Amino acid sequence: MVWGRLVLNKTLLNELMLETDEERGILRGDKAVNKEIYTNLTSDFIIQSEKFLKDDLIMIRKHPRYIDFPKHSHDYIEMNYVFNGQFHQKVANQSMTLRQGDILLLNQHIEHELTACKKEDIIINFIIHPAFFDYILSNLSTGFIQSQMIHFLMNSIFDYNQTGQFLYYPVSDSIRIQEIMSQLLEEMFEESILSKSKIKFLMGLLILELIEQQKQTQQNNFYTEKHTFLTEVFRYIEENYREANLQALAKQFNQTAYWVSKQVKALTNQNFKDLVQEKRLLVAKNLLLYSELSMQAIAEEIGYENISYFYRIFKQKYKMTPKVYQTQLLKKE
Rank of each mutant, 00 (worst) to 15 (best):
V2Q: 15
L6D: 10
L12P: 01
L13Q: 14
M17A: 15
M17W: 15
T20W: 00
G25H: 05
L27M: 12
L27P: 00
G29C: 06
N34M: 02
K35A: 12
N40G: 15
N40M: 10
S43V: 12
F45A: 05
D55F: 15
D55L: 13
D56K: 14
L57G: 04
H63R: 09
H72F: 02
H72N: 07
M79R: 04
H88D: 11
K90A: 06
T97Q: 01
Q100P: 04
Q100V: 07
T115R: 13
T115S: 14
A116Q: 11
K118P: 02
F133I: 04
L140A: 07
G143F: 08
I145F: 09
S147T: 06
M149Y: 08
L153T: 04
N155H: 08
D159P: 04
N161D: 15
G164Y: 04
Q165W: 02
L184Y: 00
L184P: 01
E190N: 13
E191F: 05
S192C: 03
K198N: 11
K198F: 12
K200M: 13
L202F: 01
I207N: 03
I211L: 10
E212A: 13
Q213T: 03
T217G: 09
Q218R: 11
Q219R: 05
Q219D: 06
N220A: 03
N221K: 07
E232C: 05
V233R: 00
E238N: 12
E243P: 00
A244S: 05
L246N: 00
A248D: 10
F253I: 00
N254V: 06
Q255T: 06
Q270R: 04
N271A: 10
D274Y: 00
D274S: 11
V276Q: 00
E278H: 10
R280S: 00
R280F: 02
L282C: 04
K285H: 01
N286P: 01
L288E: 12
L293Q: 15
S294A: 06
M295S: 05
Q296M: 14
I298E: 07
I298W: 03
E300H: 09
I302L: 00
I307H: 13
Y309R: 14
R312F: 09
I313V: 15
F314Q: 03
Q316S: 15
M320C: 12
T321W: 01
T321G: 11
K323W: 08
V324M: 12
K331Y: 03
K332I: 13
